[in-house]
Amino acid sequence: MALLEIRRVSKFFGGLAANSDISFEVRQGMIMGLIGPNGAGKTTLFNCITGYYPPSRGEVVFNDKRMNGLHPDAVCKLGMARTWQKVRPLARMSVVDNVMVGALCRTNSLTKAREMAMEQIKVVRLEQRLDARAGSLPIGERKKLEVARVLATQPKLLLLDEVMGGLNPAESEEIIELILDVGKLGITQMVIEHNMRAIMRVSDRIVVLNSGEKLAEGNPREIVANKAVIQAYLGESDA
């Protein structure tokens, strides 16, 4: 069953089509990779899906509900949550408080929220940093905090926008493990990533965007072998 359906979504900024006529679906339980060169429209698509922009055309259907026109907070309450390419820690709040803000989406009790937060902090292995100010964390831990915070909102679908950006190989490895662990919890994920090795490892299926259009879709093996994808990434060959 499709948890998320993108139906012919377009987004125009003035005359520029950041997304044009994109369609695909994300099935329950899968990890969907979303790749493409810089400026391909990946983050714009995330913004259209999560309510930051209304799509200019087309429909976003989540859990059989039309999402167009809903605000990000309503989208989150319905079970679709996103992280940010540029991390957005609540800098002067502690790690545990950051995650509690996410948990408070599902409860009004601080005690309950703290319990829920602790659970997610364990998932991302930040137990040692509970009381540290979020703004003081190094980038690797900030990315983990972001994942814990968004997990605490108890999403059915998690959208991760370049969680490995700016990380060293060891840290990236940890995030890969984390994505796979979250997948095992039964949470469907859509992952934007530039790190090809990582995306090939975690994704069940991959959608490739280029210049705002959908270029290809398939399992990782098909995508690596796809001529159009190779061209988009490496350019025309002269030979």
Binding site: H71, D73, C76, W84, R88, M93, V101, G102, T153
Partner: peptide, 19 residues
């Protein structure tokens, strides 16, 4: 908690379900 989240980062707060 919600007030402070809004103070720290409105977009992040919005994405975490805060109206």
């Amino acid at each position: 908690y919600y007030f402070q989240a809004i103070r720290e980062d409105q977009d992040a707060a919005h994405s975490l379900g805060i109206n």
